[in-house]
Design a protein around this nucleic acid. Structure first.
Ligand SMILES: Nc1ncnc2c1ncn2[C@H]1C[C@H](O)[C@@H](COP(=O)(O)OP(=O)(O)OP(=O)(O)O)O1
Ligand SMILES: [Mg+2]
Ligand SMILES: [Mg+2]
Ligand SMILES: [Mg+2]
Length: 737
DNA sequence: CGGATCGAC
DNA sequence: CTATGTCGATCCG
């Protein structure tokens, strides 16, 4: 196999810094020859069906003869039963049969069946395109694809050590601890309608998260169901976070029961091995909470997260920071195990769940090695983003930068009613939801301008209706005023659930933070400010960590470039307050870039475009020097500064806006002023938008110089692909990095 | 922008 | 009898 390498592979090997023969033989062993680059324009199925989120026409599909409803249950309900930790060797046949018997014929089941056939249709279409592609010379794209892979490979960072820690059967373990007589009996937390989680004892029976209690009781009649005590879990969560902070003040919590820690720096001051540290953390957790946790250790978040599940419960897994080990580790990994959190800038990028597993399964992709093998097809069949995701996952490339503070982007509430509500009762329920949402918004001290209402009919059909309002709102009265218009426009059917959600959020107050005191170190306080999404059955769910955002004072637009020592003893990012102790300057700079880019280009994932269009060498690098460490040190680009300025202005304008809303008694005056402000806000927003567009200079249309074919909003990658085909020679638009 | 869908906890 | 609540992300028209 290593014989018939073609030209492109040689290039790859020459350029790649991680050159390693064995690993590459593995990586490329699926490629054979590539000969004629045929002109393949017309009949190529247009790429871009997506991995997720296709909302395509779901017309009344000529209902397939219900390809065996039992199968459906196995797919839709039973999937997690075998997947989740602590589920090996149980009688899945029996479990599926019981679930099926308890489920069939219910509206819930019918809805699941409907969704299932929608996915089936999607898969059929995909397979069609796949078959078409198979008849062609897919290796036409080998060069482009491997060029891209090469790019990912260059991003691989093996310098850090990340630990992912996740509590075992979290809610259930807390209850077991507090009610010792429940030890060794199967328990679950939740109620008859819905379970949040189950103990490992109960998992032996197939009882699991997101299963209704009454089904669980059929699976396991002895099951003890404990109601949710959310405040207890929050308290425990705070305790373990204290522990996390001892090892990484910037640890990144994912939920109440799990977090990522970057222990690279801690390792340097202890002489202990990563495994010992991980064990030590888990020991401390047990001593201080009497609960067990599992851990995964790896070079990045992806590997750590996968690892934490391997020896669950109460175990840990260590993966060496070594290319061969990583590839060997990923090779046989079922794709379903690929978790979220591959990238630092987005909190939860796509991951492989039930549907994506089925879709890839249709292409005979079951393991990560299969992803590599089929990469040329994946490239043609899926969106650029999905391809990117699949490849990086399969290569075991994830972010080794634990995410920075993530701003909450929406706040919402929803309720399933004890019995379906008639159309005439909608408004009173809506009113209650608005009150609830208003209190949540108060806790966060935000307002927002897009309001969505979600409806779930008794048939379980769910849909949403949204509207963007002229102004920012947050009061229950305003929420109700606008949401009722949405509700009243809908068909008067019976509903089993209603919900409302506010997006396009903005801080409500504009108090000017002095900006000075927050730059002083608060050693050991572990001021981790990420907002976590809590979840619960009970009503009093919402846990929220207040995010006091450093409203950026435009003080230090310029920072000097001095000679930079390799290590900073202490640094605190002026923007997100992340603390660094004994950290390499390079890493801090990387963070600063991330942090600023995030705020400047919230939608842009592609450095390539930024790099390409920004020829100014100062752009893309922010530097710090030691003498400015304790103060601010973000010499950042002009456009960011402008952006921040305009945001500040908007906030100030809106403060007036808010005052008007509170005095809603004077209707006329209020609307006048509101109108005025809206205009200003708009123009400001527009200007900041165009700014972003200018920075990125997104290519709207592109015409191939050779064949004159026009492309709509092409990415660099697509252009490359086309050029590969259109021109006989390979043309690659390189971006500098 | 609005709406559907996927995925996680 | 009876199938949660909350959030982020992507994609398409
Ligand atoms: N679908 C869900 N709905 C509501 N709450 C959930 C759901 N899934 C999980 N939770 C809550 C309860 C869990 O104890 C807690 C942590 O989730 P998670 O870590 O995935 O499972 P777990 O801690 O219960 O078991 P494991 O040992 O597999 O980690 O979040
Ligand atoms: Mg857990
Ligand atoms: Mg968890
Ligand atoms: Mg997964």
């Amino acid at each position: 196999m290593t014989e018939t390498r073609f030209q492109e592979i040689d290039i790859f090997e020459v350029e790649c810094e991680y050159a390693n023969e064995a690993a590459y033989a593995y990586l490329f062993n699926s490629l054979h020859e590539i000969e004629e680059m045929e002109e393949l324009q017309s009949p190529i199925p247009q790429t871009d069906n997506s991995n997720i989120g296709t909302s395509s026409s779901k017309t009344g599909i000529a209902e397939q003869p219900s390809e065996d409803a039992h199968e459906l249950v196995r797919r839709r309900m039973g999937d997690l039963a075998c997947n989740k930790a602590g589920m090996q060797g149980l009688d899945t046949e029996k479990i599926n049969r019981i679930i099926y018997e308890a489920t069939k014929g219910t509206p819930f089941f019918e809805n699941e069946a409907r969704k299932d056939t929608a996915v089936s249709v999607r898969i059929e279409k995909l397979k069609e395109r796949y078959e078409t592609l198979k008849k062609r010379d897919i290796f036409t794209f080998a060069f482009t694809v491997d060029k891209i892979i090469q790019k990912y490979e260059r991003e691989r960072d093996l310098s850090r050590t990340i630990v992912h820690i996740d509590m075992d059967a979290f809610y259930a373990s807390v209850e077991e601890r507090d009610y010792p007589h429940l030890k060794n009996v199967p328990i679950a937390v939740g109620d008859n309608m819905m379970l949040s989680t189950s103990s490992y004892e109960a998992r032996k029976y197939g009882v699991r998260s997101a299963m209704p209690g009454f089904i669980a009781m059929k699976l396991c009649p002895q099951l003890v169901i404990i109601p949710c005590h959310f405040d207890k879990y929050t308290a425990v969560s705070n305790k373990i976070r204290e522990i996390f902070a001892r090892y990484d003040p910037n640890f990144s919590p994912v939920s109440l029961d799990e977090a990522y820690l970057d222990i690279t720096n801690y390792l340097q001051i202890t002489n202990k091995s990563p495994e010992e540290i991980s064990q030590q953390i888990r020991n401390e957790i047990f001593e201080e909470t009497k609960l067990t946790a599992s851990a995964g250790i790896g070079a990045n978040m992806l590997l750590a997260k996968i690892g934490s599940n391997i020896n669950k419960p109460n175990g840990q897994h260590f993966l060496q920071k070594n290319y061969e080990c990583i590839m060997e580790f990923m090779r046989n990994l079922p794709i379903r195990k690929v978790p979220a959190r591959l990238s630092a800038e987005k909190s939860n990028p796509a991951s492989i769940g039930k549907v994506t597993e089925r879709i890839l399964g249709a292409l005979d992709i079951k393991t990560c090695a299969d992803i590599i093998d089929k990469r040329l097809y994946l490239y043609r069949l899926f969106s650029e983003h999905s391809f990117n995701f699949f490849m990086r996952a399969a290569l075991g490339i994830g972010s080794s930068i634990t995410p920075i503070e993530i701003e909450r982007k929406s706040v919402g509430v929803s309720r399933t009613f004890s019995s379906p509500i008639r159309p005439k009762d909608r408004l009173s329920k809506l009113r209650q939801l608005c009150e609830l949402l208003a209190t949540e918004l108060d806790k966060e001290n935000v307002s927002g301008k897009t309001l969505s209402v979600v409806f779930k009919e008794v048939s379980f059909r769910t849909f949403t209706r949204a509207r963007t309002i002229n102004k920012y709102i947050h009061s229950a009265d305003n929420l109700f005023h606008y949401s009722r218009q949405i509700v009243e426009a809908e068909m008067p059917t019976d509903l089993r659930l209603m919900g409302i959600r506010l997006t396009k959020l903005r801080p409500r107050d504009t108090e000017i933070k002095s900006g000075v005191k927050r730059y002083f170190p608060v050693i050991g306080s572990g001021s981790c400010k990420k907002i976590c999404s809590g979840s619960s059955n009970g009503k009093k769910s919402v846990e929220s960590v207040k995010t006091s955002k450093p409203t950026t004072s435009a003080t230090n637009s310029r920072s000097k470039w001095h000679e930079v020592p390799a290590i900073a003893q202490f640094f605190k990012c002026p923007r997100c307050e992340r603390q660094y102790i004994n950290e390499k300057i390079a890493h801090i700079n990387e963070h600063l870039d991330q942090c600023m880019i995030n705020n400047a280009h919230p939608n842009d994932n592609s450095n390539e475009l930024i790099m390409k269009t920004n020829s100014d060498p100062t752009i893309g690098g922010s530097g710090i020097t030691l003498d400015t460490l304790e103060n601010v040190a973000c010499g950042r680009t002009n456009e960011v500064i402008c952006h921040q300025d305009s945001r500040t202005l908007i906030e100030i304008l809106d403060e007036k806006d808010q005052q008007q809303h509170d005095g809603e008694t004077v209707e006329l005056l209020s609307t006048n002023v509101a109108l005025k402000n809206v205009k200003k806000t708009r123009s400001l927003e527009n200007s900041s938008d165009t700014e972003n567009i200018l920075n990125v200079q997104q290519i709207i249309t592109w015409e191939c110089p050779k064949c004159q074919k026009n492309f709509n909003r092409p990415t660099l990658m697509r252009i490359n692909t086309h050029l590969d085909v259109c021109l006989r020679k390979k043309v690659t638009l390189r971006s500098r990095r």
